[in-house]
Design a protein around this nucleic acid. Structure first.
Lengths: 345, 345
DNA sequence: TTGTACGCGTTATCAA
DNA sequence: TTGATAACGCGTACAA
């Protein structure tokens, strides 16, 4: 049987109030003797506080929930890890909710979390296109959203990653290293952050007095296989020397495709990723990619969300995280094709 | 303000019993009219069941907790993902607890989980060496353990991965492909599963009439850097043609080291991993490794744990998961050194 | 079919 | 310093 405060009360022959004060550390005005007695008894009997009962009164649970589309994608893994770390640090527990990129699971989990009376929710929104039912769900607790202003726009805490800046830098870098014709393998066209990326890229082109014809756009799923299959099917547009990918996973698929095609990276083709996950250090060649601080994102979101929970007045709603290009080995100056028409050495 | 059953009672002018029956789906014997009225009202008012209050009565929370040493290690990522998936499927929520391989966090989290009245706990034990304080914590809920019989031996559900078998197969395979001298980069010597691995390896050697001198053992942390640094410092023992690593991360470190040393894989050195995480498909060359079904482990553990929770009588305590060798590109027959004394072609 | 009263374990308030 | 007691929201048993 589980030991409750009541049991301690009986055993120690004192009042509930006394036991409560001692066991919750508010023992300023409790006689040293009773204090000792209660503490020893609690330890001996193996007393464990019942957080459920406490939460009934205090109206908080010191619990958060996090929704991610796919834990196995290292981008989300790192967000979760950052969120968990910060949450623990601030005294909160974290429910892990994997939505498999489906709206259905997303809504199921939101419901569940609200029933469990979490103090707040972190939503890394699924990338599903069909958002119709979303409106049916009223989220009645503070919640934070990463990078998806279109949906859940009534969120309390919003963290935006400056996708525009990173993409701008990437194209600028490519132009500086002599590339003239790019392919952008975007993930999903109508995602808000994808539009930001496009803007950034176009801006860089404009500043360099190029037309948007310098850049062809393909759409593929945000996966290794997605990128690989599409490239296999469509091939590279004429004259393309650089490939920008929507995330590191797609870049990985692209690298594999390029190898299978006998292309050398970066000599024949430069490849860029997006995210700067662990993968980018592991690929051969190592991936040039745009860092968007996944670990930090999770932690910052939790930090702001908890601030919002604990003090409704002072909280930041909208943070922006800078991104920057990390140049590794998968990019370089293109080798002019014309010079390579002669047979290989 | 949050809407409770009481509110619905007042608004609908019916009894608590009625509202309860309808809202918890036990509406067999409720008049269609009242049922409709209550449902509509609940929807309109945005009623959300309070799981805390329910749990106070029912004595269960439909909640589990999982302890992992390091979410970023893909081995654990996949276990978590499997656990989460199965838990959700069975109607349970999951607390994510990252212990950073420290006993301190492990105990903190165990305490927290018990206070939150979880129905069960999954422990993927931290690899910390100092287990002294472990005895102080009495776990009062059903819990399952993966692969670590020494600690938490009073667990209710235990899942063992047949480390012996996998290691046996690996050495057998190496011998069959002509290797004579190995290096085993073990993670932590005194871990139970490491002892199993050693046994498996030694058995394979014995059966092939080799002495244990065929195998040198180094100890390194279970990380990329750990393996890399150790190899850099110690180098390879004379005559070594194959390297067995304690996990895929270490194998990755070994691959990097080999490349920096100008060794060709597998021509100059065969490298084996352990785990079969996503990484093993990504490395160049792709990693030969021992699959231990990380995703499945998590799911099986949750399945058995929930069985244990829901029906104390019928449950399996001890499952064993077979492992098998997955041969990819990082291993092959060694090229006899003597034949290569002449300059390269 | 409906209404009512009490318990769950902790917390907070007020009185002794 | 201490003690008694009423919430918190839901589940259940019993009475009407």
């Amino acid at each position: 049987m589980t030991v409750t405060m009541k049991d301690i009360v009986k055993i120690c022959q004192v009042s509930t109030a006394m036991v409560f004060k001692v066991l919750s550390g508010k023992d300023q005005d409790v006689a040293e003797g009773t204090k000792e007695k209660i503490l020893q008894c609690a330890k001996k009997e193996g007393y464990v506080m019942n957080a459920l009962a406490r939460s009934m009164k205090t109206k908080d649970t010191k619990t958060l929930g996090i929704l991610v589309p796919d834990l196995k994608n290292p981008y989300y893994t790192e967000i979760c890890r950052g969120a968990e770390e910060k949450a623990h640090e601030m005294g909160y527990s974290l429910f892990l909710c994997n939505t498999d990129n489906t709206l259905e699971k997303e809504l199921q989990y939101l419901q569940k979390l609200m029933e469990k009376q979490v103090d707040g929710i972190l939503i890394i929104a699924s990338l599903a296109r069909d958002r119709r039912k979303e409106e049916e769900m009223k989220i009645t607790v503070p919640f934070g959203v990463l990078n998806n202003a279109t949906h859940y726009k009534d969120c309390d805490v919003y963290l935006e990653v400056d996708n525009k800046r990173g993409s701008y830098e990437a194209v600028q870098y490519l132009l500086a290293t002599g590339h003239e014709q790019f392919l952008y393998l975007e993930g999903i066209t109508d995602l808000p952050f994808n539009k930001d990326r496009l803007q950034g890229m176009e801006e860089a082109l404009r500043e360099a007095h190029r037309t948007t014809q310098s850049m062809v756009i393909y759409e593929a799923p945000f996966t290794m296989e997605g990128a690989y299959d599409l490239l296999k099917e469509q091939g590279l547009p004429e004259g393309t020397t650089a490939l920008l990918c929507g995330n590191d996973l797609m870049a990985l698929g692209a690298i594999n495709w390029a190898k299978d095609e006998g292309l050398e990276i970066p000599k024949d083709l430069s490849i860029l990723g997006f995210d700067n996950t662990v993968f980018s250090e592991i690929t051969v060649p190592k991936l040039t990619t745009i860092d968007q601080y996944c670990h930090g994102s999770g932690a910052i979101l939790v930090g702001n969300l908890v601030k919002r929970i604990q003090d409704v007045e002072h909280y930041e709603t909208h943070d922006i995280l800078e991104t920057h290009l990390v140049v590794r080995e998968s990019t370089g100056s293109p080798v002019i094709k014309k010079a390579r028409k002669s047979p290989n050495p």
